[in-house]
């Protein structure tokens, strides 16, 4: 199992390499809640350094793709092919469609957040070959085990650490709210210090980011997968560590935790706000409704 860490700056490659990171996750201009915006030349330079260290580079192309994005997507994928990127992490299957036309489908990791919840997702992508799928955020450990039992020629991965997103809107919700309140002069785009607090959940603060592609809301507590790692390691190809809202030190210690450099006790003694997400918590099926058909 490879550990995939989000790269903040090219100058950080050596640090992450020393920590034992196997793969650098790099944002592109078609990435949501990005840590850095990279042009093709930046990506090429990062790939060159990473490869020289025996490490891999995964590109994030995870915005929802609209008609107007198709041209830049094509160019981005052609660049990825030329550079020889190891993998492309996608949220919208459009990227797979274009990648396939370029013979890049074997690089695709489908990471839509919510859709990969069942064994058949595995079967579908075994019949429509790609590199792998990232299991959905809201499934249990038992479900992961069952799905893994069906995966043969398809890599499985998981975002197993950090603040996971739970909402992606194309609307600019912070901008609109500040206009509504006539609040002017505030920095909005890609600012990571905004939090939402729901009226009857006083102790829960949900990070919210607005970027050029919309608004993203995150869980109030951070996911940790240390206890489950022994179970998951044999079935996962990649373990993604989310970095948003974490100070560098906490992120580096998170990597040290999974690499066995520090113990869970030491880690949780130093950092709070972690939980096991949905691993042991199946969600209820029925009670409400939604505006989708």
């Amino acid at each position: 199992m490879q550990f995939v860490a989000r790269l903040k700056t090219a100058s950080e490659i050596e640090t992450l390499h020393q920590l034992g990171v196997d793969v650098f996750s790099v944002d592109t201009k078609l990435a949501i809640h990005k840590l850095m915006e990279n042009q093709s030349s930046d990506i090429e330079a990062i790939a060159k350094i990473a490869n020289s260290l025996g490490r891999k580079v995964y590109l994030n192309i995870n915005k929802m793709i609209h008609e107007e994005d198709l041209g830049s997507l094509q160019v981005l994928l052609e660049d990825a092919k030329r550079i020889g990127i190891d993998s492309i992490v996608i949220n919208d299957m459009t990227v797979y469609v274009i990648a396939k036309q370029l013979g890049l489908e074997s690089k695709i990791i489908y990471q839509p957040g919510t859709m990969n919840t069942d064994s058949y997702s595995v079967e579908y992508f075994q019949n429509h070959p790609i590199k792998g799928i990232t299991l959905s955020r809201e499934i249990t450990l038992n479900e992961i085990r069952k799905i893994a039992g069906k995966a043969h020629d398809l890599e499985l991965s998981l975002i197993g650490h950090g603040y996971l997103d739970m909402f992606y809107s194309k609307r600019k919700l912070l901008t609109n709210y500040f206009k509504h309140k006539n609040i002017i002069g505030r920095e909005i785009t890609n600012k990571h210090s905004y939090r939402l607090n729901e009226e009857i959940r006083a102790d829960d603060f949900y990070p919210i980011i607005e970027d050029e592609f919309g608004t993203h809301v995150f869980r109030s507590r951070k996911l940790i997968t240390f206890q489950e790692l022994e179970t998951l390691e044999p079935v996962l190809s990649d373990f993604f560590l989310e970095r948003l809202f974490l100070e560098d030190e906490e992120y580096y210690d998170s990597i040290r935790l999974y690499k066995g450099v520090i113990t869970e006790e030491e880690f949780l003694g130093k950092y709070s706000g972690y939980e096991s997400g949905f691993y042991y918590l199946p969600t209820e099926l029925i009670k409400g409704d939604s505006n989708v058909d």
């Binding site: 919510t114 809201e138 739970m166 809107s169 969600t283 029925i286 409400g288 409704d289 939604s290 505006n291």
Partner: peptide, 27 residues
């Protein structure tokens, strides 16, 4: 309308344990 991209939201899952993508959305 869902204010999120439909099918990409787990607010309800996380906040009340009801699966938005399986008919349990708590809005």
């Amino acid at each position: 309308m869902c204010v999120s991209y439909s099918g990409r939201c787990t607010l309800s899952n996380y906040m009340v344990g009801r699966d938005a993508n399986r008919g349990g959305c708590a809005h």
